[in-house]
Design a protein around this nucleic acid. Structure first.
Lengths: 149, 149
DNA sequence: CTCAATTGATTGACATATCAACTATTTTAA
DNA sequence: TTAAAATAGTTGATATGTCAATCAATTGAG
């Protein structure tokens, strides 16, 4: 039976969610939430829009994940002065305290996937996946502009 | 910002669901259902357990997807004589009629992803993904047997 | 300037998937 | 042989994500 790229990636995605939910359980962080924290560790104060776009996650899902992180005490939200529609999201001290522990746990998944692969091979793989994402995004933009005509 | 393999695959997975839901809408088939039909086109009469295992999808999700396909008239279910716990799932005539149309639509996604890649490169990519899935499955089996101790 | 279009965020309805608990069978081991 | 364990499937609770509708704020074209 042919194993298609799509099916294989679907399996890896589902399994990754199971993995993250398990390993992050003791930090009280879910598989839906960690990508936002991860992004904020690099770009504290990012807007929800910015994160939605970068992570390719629906803005509704973003709103809910950020709200949940706020309730858990990992982030705070502030409306921008320059544009009151925008929420800037900031890490709390509680979030900074778990940064290393969280990153370590998250790395575990990539390590499992790339176990036994050369650094070169991993780099190439990442490159190809990035190109695939680019193709999809290009197609989405094309379809979107078509909608308006 | 580092684009990790996990994040890229998550994006491609989410986008693929959107793609399949859109393109299969006119056949009244959802992104959750098509993998089962696809499997049955190769192995008509498979059990739910067999499909759950091959597709790495929870047996509860399988039960619901198959039930939905039954309600839509694409499959029928029969309890096995030899083991009354087992459901064998069979394609209906209605399913066979749409086989080609469905496969064509599904191929569209892989084609988009692999556009511009050499056959060799695609083969290599598939190979690597398969190895990743194997590593994850091995780890799952390891954890499972540990649970029993 | 001003009114229509756009944008960022929120909410409700729904789809998909997991986990845990349960039922009904079948298998296994004492 | 029979009681316990395992297996296939179902169901309920819950988590994640999409879409569509809505709101408020901003932008831009005439």
């Amino acid at each position: 039976m042919r194993k298609s790229i799509g099916r294989l990636m679907a399996i890896l995605h589902r399994q990754s969610q199971i993995y993250y939910n398990n390993t992050l359980k003791d930090l009280n962080i879910s598989s839906a939430e960690y990508p936002f924290l991860l992004y904020l560790f690099s770009r504290d104060g990012a807007s929800q829009e910015e994160m939605s776009c970068y992570l390719n996650i629906d803005k509704a899902a973003t709103a809910r994940a950020v709200k949940s992180l706020e309730e858990k005490g990992y982030v705070t939200r502030e409306k921008a002065d320059s544009d009151k529609r925008v929420n800037h999201v900031f890490l709390t001290e509680k979030a900074n305290e778990i940064e290393l522990a969280m990153k370590k746990k998250i790395t575990g998944w990539s390590d499992l996937l790339t176990e036994g692969m050369s650094g070169e091979s991993i780099e190439e793989m990442t490159q190809i996946l990035e190109e695939m994402v680019n193709k999809v995004e290009k197609r989405n933009i094309r379809n979107k502009t078509e909608d308006k005509r």
